[in-house]
Simulated scan of single mutants.
Amino acid sequence: MFGVLEGTGFEVIEPEFAACFIGHARVERLWTGARWSEGPAWFPAGRYLVWSDIPNNRLLRWDETDGSVSEFRTPSNNANGNTVDTEGRLVSCEHLTRRVTRTEHDGSISVIASHWEGKRLNSPNDVVVKSDGSVWFTDPSYGILMDYEGERADSEIGDCHVYRADPETGKVEVVATGFFKPNGLAFSADEAWLYVSDTGITHHEDGPAHIEKLKLGKDGKTVEDRRVFAVCSNGIFDGFRLDRDGRIWTSAADGVHCLDKTGALIGKIHIPEMVGNVCFGGAKLNRLFVAGTTSLYSVFLNVNGLK
């Protein structure tokens, strides 16, 4: 069941990609049994990975020391995206409760964001933490469109935005509007740019299936410019991460796509099912963990991810 899989591997589209992988390294399936895997987050101190199985309403934990998988939290409130903050705590987007939460070191849960201007959020989807401790997250309506990954409800806000929660005041503010379904997001290494995917094509016939590149203002809190960075050639760009050289490793319908600094597709890692999200892990951040539809995969690369 587990180990190296047939039908997986690397596809070189541009020569640059050939230097990103190790010739004898192969894609490994570490575990299977989910309904829809999402939001992998690596915890270096414990050498484990936490990820979401959204429809099964649980967070799972893969242990690097022995390869075991256990339930980290059940119920998870249909948690989707996860990340690790500057103090090593788990930050999660919960569809069912329509909020962003933080798991404290003692195991208690604090609410980071649940409302904007007195209105409930739609269903926070993915989240990143900036070096200043601010929490940035997307808020599409996927979790309130159906009961499978949340609970059907009307949007109180009426739109889907990208938000920032201030680390000092806790105030939640909109930083970017005009999205159909804002989804995955990540900062560049210098935090001068924020990348956000828009997966609006899932519910709008002519909707987007791209990643936008947003330039932050000098205050590091606002957006002063934005442009389309890359359009997905197979399915949608859901979740993604950057490596230290500025390449983006992003989910797609046929696996993981690697984009260079200009947004050009330079290569693929083929996975035998649709991919929801990825993250870098391991002691040297050179192991890419891939949340496929039903399974958790990994592959060692010749690149290093951002923390």
Rank of each mutant, 00 (worst) to 15 (best):
residue 237 F to I: 11
residue 231 V to A: 11
residue 80 N to E: 02
residue 205 E to D: 13
residue 47 R to W: 01
residue 42 W to D: 04
residue 166 D to S: 02
residue 281 G to Q: 14
residue 102 R to E: 04
residue 9 G to L: 01
residue 256 V to N: 13
residue 63 D to T: 03
residue 206 D to N: 14
residue 103 T to P: 02
residue 266 I to C: 13
residue 175 V to F: 01
residue 138 T to N: 08
residue 213 K to I: 11
residue 241 R to T: 14
residue 178 G to E: 01
residue 143 G to T: 07
residue 90 L to Y: 03
residue 270 H to W: 07
residue 257 H to L: 15
residue 194 L to T: 09
residue 25 A to R: 05
residue 296 L to P: 05
residue 92 S to N: 07
residue 200 G to R: 03
residue 22 I to S: 06
residue 247 R to E: 10
residue 20 C to G: 00
residue 290 V to Y: 08
residue 201 I to R: 15
residue 219 D to P: 13
residue 143 G to S: 09
residue 285 L to K: 15
residue 90 L to T: 01
residue 273 E to C: 02
residue 111 V to H: 06
residue 79 A to P: 03
residue 148 Y to Q: 09
residue 40 P to M: 04
residue 252 A to S: 15
residue 19 A to M: 06
residue 109 I to V: 13
residue 260 D to A: 13
residue 55 P to G: 05
residue 267 G to R: 10
residue 196 V to M: 08
residue 74 T to P: 02
residue 294 T to S: 14
residue 40 P to N: 04
residue 165 A to H: 06
residue 168 E to N: 07
residue 129 V to I: 06
residue 307 K to Q: 11
residue 115 H to C: 08
residue 248 I to C: 12
residue 291 A to Q: 08
residue 125 N to Q: 05
residue 112 I to R: 03
residue 111 V to E: 08
residue 198 D to A: 08
residue 168 E to V: 08
residue 138 T to K: 08
residue 243 D to Q: 11
residue 12 V to M: 02
residue 18 A to S: 06
residue 279 C to A: 11
residue 114 S to P: 01
residue 294 T to H: 15
residue 288 L to E: 11
residue 170 G to A: 00
residue 105 H to K: 13
residue 24 H to P: 00
residue 251 S to R: 12
residue 303 V to G: 10
residue 109 I to Q: 07
residue 164 R to A: 00
residue 100 V to I: 06
residue 29 R to W: 04
residue 151 E to F: 09
residue 271 I to W: 10
residue 209 A to C: 11
residue 212 E to N: 14
residue 273 E to R: 04
residue 261 K to P: 14
residue 261 K to R: 14
residue 125 N to Y: 01
residue 268 K to W: 09
residue 94 E to K: 06
